[in-house]
Nucleic acid binder design. Sequence first.
DNA 1: ATAGGTATTGCATCTGACGCATCAATCTGC
DNA 2: GCAGATTGATGCGTCAGATGCAATACCTAT
Lengths: 274, 274
Amino acid sequence: MADEHPSSLRRALALLDALASDDAVAHGGWGVNRLAAHEGRDQSQVSRTLRVFADAGYVERDPESMAYRIGWHVFALAAKAADQRLIAAGGPILRRLVEKDLGERIHLSVLQGSEVLTVLTQSPPHAVQTVAWAGRMVSAHNTSSGRALLIDHERAEIERMFAGVAFGVGGPNAPRDVEALYERILTARRAGYAIVDEEFEPGLVAAAAPVRDFRGGVIAALNVSAPKFRLWNRLPFAGQAIKSAADELSVQLGWDGVRASQLVGAHVPSEVPA
Amino acid sequence: MADEHPSSLRRALALLDALASDDAVAHGGWGVNRLAAHEGRDQSQVSRTLRVFADAGYVERDPESMAYRIGWHVFALAAKAADQRLIAAGGPILRRLVEKDLGERIHLSVLQGSEVLTVLTQSPPHAVQTVAWAGRMVSAHNTSSGRALLIDHERAEIERMFAGVAFGVGGPNAPRDVEALYERILTARRAGYAIVDEEFEPGLVAAAAPVRDFRGGVIAALNVSAPKFRLWNRLPFAGQAIKSAADELSVQLGWDGVRASQLVGAHVPSEVPA
DNA sequence: ATAGGTATTGCATCTGACGCATCAATCTGC
DNA sequence: GCAGATTGATGCGTCAGATGCAATACCTAT
């Protein structure tokens, strides 16, 4: 069921993804040759395909180096894809969490299939800017963000979602199977926030809480992660801080805490104004 | 010279563009039929093409209404490429400002904690290259770049950020405390650009404006600085020039000026169909 | 001048995008 | 209940167009 057709479209899109890879970005874009080598395709095809992308504004090339990079059009599309209110309201809340409450790196993420995509990141002033996590995807089963995003999911849904996913990777305490994962989701559901202790990476702990929109469904997660030695003893406090910040963000998105919490699980009939 | 090849790729991309149209966004996405009608293509092709896009994450569909909309993967592409593009698109804009509009040194800077890091510099041809400012960090509270980078910040955030920072250093007019700093930020917010007059260094004046990306947040600042005797009498003009250049750069990063500016600060009542 | 690197283009081959058709699944109104 | 309308998915024969090879052109370095 994976790929019925290799599909020229899919091959073309792979070029865009390659141009957004860390390596390509670090080099200020890639030339036709390099791109072709990376994708295992002929230069001629890459050249022609990129010309179409360039005409449509999806890529553009540096006149000097002839290197292609992601073009303005993708940014325009992204602006449409982003839930503007979530992003706009999220910024100040992330900054406040970093500066006032926790002093550690804070992320805002959304669920993408069985993985987690980080859409906003805020680092403490002193931190070394190691990696720009915005735009990154990580697994959902061994991260606190993933746990928070799945907090309303039923057992059967979890099983279906992680049918083909390898467990036990990451940190030493990563859940070994769906059973263990669901247990921990239940724990998170009771607390209102999720805690992860060396599940994603050795020495890394994290806390996360779900963000809900006006329909009561989980649309994002707020999380903090840091080395265990720095965060471990105040992790419950961090969980509470994350949770109240996430609730605040939810309220700004129209969430009615009281009513919605009664409706969790029961599918809210979509009474969305057309 | 427009289209040598109609190219299936271009037709496919047109579907994405259609999904990003205001009309489609307003309706919470479009169905296959509507999309086909809009593009004048057969439903079967649209259905198949969208399946490929969906598999690659470029679009996603609402399980309820079956409507497709732009997916978060596009967001991920843009987030990863944003910095790269800021630098790439910034170069020409800086050069144009120097050569055509102002004839003074122009900088592009980003916020690092409570300080300002200059990432790009363009000097007028005749200028003696005194200091290479690229890579240099300066304080944020008494520079126009800092003022522009903090233009959206709330008072409480400013207070926390500058809790341990010494004020009153630099030029004779440097803000003496957080109070004064926030006042000047408010002034900058109203004007859309920041002006400093002998705050950083005696005899130095400057103007700066914020650069926003597709998320609407401030990610960089464009600024011009020069000796007071040379720039003072045209500083308002310089501010406007910097602001329109910064806006232009923002647009290239996917910033939708109208919508984003409405979202800043003002809490939009939640009646948006998600 | 040659050599090694780049990107583009001409052309024959054959994949896969295309349109027509059919089919399943909802919604309609009666 | 039925028939009609509207939705999206799919089977299949056809030919547009994506592909790969080779040739071309254009750099910079030696």
